[in-house]
Design a protein around this nucleic acid. Structure first.
Lengths: 168, 168
DNA sequence: CTAAACTTTCAAAACTTATTGAAAGTTTAG
DNA sequence: CTAAACTTTCAATAAGTTTTGAAAGTTTAG
């Protein structure tokens, strides 16, 4: 395979991957493009390489900035904005984890907390079963939230090291 | 809040959650319904409680069985099939992890492996950068795959225990 | 200040994914 | 074997999501 095909395939792969994890396909493709580009790219570059409209390119670049995965960069003597990606993959993983935690895990914990405030007594067997289920979800989700915090703070080697130990 | 409202909200919550993680909303709602139901439910029960068609109910129940999250159960003197969910939440988390690993992480690793087989030499700086990127993704993804294996095999307490230690 | 260069917005259109429901298929009691 | 009870399929349709592109907005060089 030629490098140019491999890059194309990589972009497709990253896009499909994003799709199946609830991330907009084009956003993931733009990310892929910047990950494997040596030079920062402008909005026009992205439009051209992915054959997408200006609006679409702009919106996905903005979203990627909100996810903290890419940065604006200015070239001397050029008014255009260029974008470059964070290239340390462990750092990328941590930032995605951090963002999903903030957007999804934390609201989930809040919603679960409100569900245990039902009026019925624990003595009502139906209420009891429901509370047990919600509480056990709270328990696992809270632990996962803490696990993500650890991941966000840990060094790559420490994090995977601790997990590898469990295999022994 | 009344129990009945709380159950309704729980179903909505689980559905929205599934949606944002690339899982069909209705499938997640059916799962929620069975998680908080004391009795096994029939296809008709699901149709009625979620106001969905027979085809939709059937398809999502079948999918949930493929994910190993629910089981068929037969009641004596009744030809209908009833369904009940695995209710141990740690077990549910492990099964979802196992299934996503099988469906997504493993094909991803295979695709990445094929991308490093480019014709260009590592001495070409562009090829070099590309290979470094793909290899660093392989590295992190492979470790995550191993981490998921550990999660699948570990006891809940051991798994989270190891992670908590990292916080100290 | 002005106009050119560039970025952002957003309503309409295209595309993707999920749902319906009637028809076909299967199972079982009698 | 037969017909009733139940489950599955799938083409048409609906719902949801993403994309387009022209217009509005913003910035900067001169």
């Amino acid at each position: 395979m030629k490098l140019i095909e491999a890059k194309e395939q990589f972009t497709q792969l990253w896009g499909a991957l994003g799709s199946s994890w609830g991330i907009n396909r084009t956003m993931a493709q733009v990310h892929a493009l910047l990950l494997i580009s040596s030079e920062p790219l402008s909005t026009e570059d992205v439009m051209e390489k992915l054959s997408v409209s200006r609006g679409n390119a702009n919106m996905n670049l903005r979203d990627l900035m909100n996810w903290n995965l890419i940065y604006k960069e200015h070239k001397a003597g050029d008014r255009k904005e260029y974008f470059k990606a964070e290239k340390d993959i462990w750092e990328v993983a941590k930032r995605i984890a951090k963002e999903r935690k903030r957007r999804e895990i934390q609201p989930l914990i809040a919603s679960l907390n409100s569900l245990v405030l039902i009026e019925e007594s624990k003595k009502d067997p139906e209420a009891h079963d429901f509370l047990m289920m919600v509480e056990s979800i709270q328990n696992v989700v809270t632990k996962m939230d803490a696990a993500v915090d650890t991941l966000i703070k840990a060094e790559e080697s420490k994090f995977f090291g601790a997990i590898v130990k469990l295999l022994k």
